[in-house]
């Protein structure tokens, strides 16, 4: 009898302990806000001044992030996985309210504590880029945006229209679709992040900075209005710029 009470108590304590540990894990959110310089990024409803007297409106801006991890210790190569793959799409953001709210991705079961920063791949990691939509049950970030002929995903899409002569008609159609393994990029943001339950990690993406490099070089839509990863220089330009366009804005 005494033995049975002892074992019951032990089991109870062990279960309680597990439960406590589980409940200590945090649910957090990765929040993305799109901007065009200092303006909120809104599809179609806003027009944005571009280089060389052109104005732009956007229909779609999206990109994949792979292997998103919190970095516990960079020197010890200690990380906490947040997500293998996410599609960050601003394609359904049509007003300022939604733009300010941004896109939120929920992640559960994250150990609380202090992290040195966040890192991720921009595009679809080579491992996942070797898979195909049929490998996933829809809805899934990788159930579309796939080039079967090139066996790979479209890492980023910019689609929009340009008014090249300031007459109010956006006659030039813009489509830039970049993929292929060689255009995959990685980024580490070294910024202390305190994680507790309901923590929010705010990331800002500046589409202007993706199109116009810090040195003033820009994608000239008078010369090129479309690229499907045909021109390696354009793919490099856009992907290198995209790396620089993503910021963490946690205080």
């Amino acid at each position: 009898m005494t033995k049975s009470i002892f074992w019951s108590l032990l089991a109870f304590l062990m279960l309680s302990s597990c439960e406590d540990k589980e409940s200590q894990l945090a649910s957090i959110s990765l929040d993305f806000t799109g901007v065009y310089e200092d303006q909120p990024l809104v599809m179609l409803d806003e027009q944005y001044a571009y280089e060389d007297g052109m104005d732009l409106k956007f229909q779609l801006f999206q990109f994949y992030l792979s292997d998103i991890q919190l970095v516990k210790s960079r020197s010890a190569n200690s990380t906490q996985d947040l997500s293998d793959i996410e599609l960050v799409s601003f394609g359904e953001i049509y007003n300022l309210t939604d733009a300010q709210q941004g896109i939120s991705i929920k992640v559960d079961n994250i150990p609380p504590g202090t992290y040195e920063g966040i890192q991720f791949g921009i595009g679809v990691s080579p491992d996942l880029n070797a898979t195909q939509p049929g490998d996933y049950d829809p809805p899934h970030p990788l159930d579309g945006h796939y080039w079967s002929w090139a066996t790979g995903y479209v890492f980023t899409k910019i689609e929009g229209i340009a008014d090249k002569d300031s007459d109010g008609t956006f006659e030039e159609k813009l489509t830039f679709h970049i993929g292929k393994d060689e255009n995959y990029r990685t980024k580490f943001i070294p910024q202390t992040i305190e994680i507790s339950d309901n923590s929010e990690i705010h990331l800002k993406v500046d589409l202007h900075q993706m199109l116009v490099k810090a040195n003033g070089d820009f994608l000239d839509f008078r010369k090129t209005s479309q690229d499907h990863t045909n021109d390696p220089a354009i793919a490099d330009f856009l992907m290198d710029n995209l790396v620089e366009s993503i910021f963490m804005i946690n205080e």
């Binding site: 179609l44 409106k57 229909q59 779609l60 689609e159 929009g160 229209i161 008609t169 956006f170 006659e171 159609k173 813009l174 489509t175 479309q226």
Partner: peptide, 14 residues
């Protein structure tokens, strides 16, 4: 032909 003009006509229709 690229279709009729419209701001939300897909940029892929050109």
């Amino acid at each position: 032909s690229g279709g009729h003009y419209g701001e939300n006509v897909s940029a892929n229709v050109r």
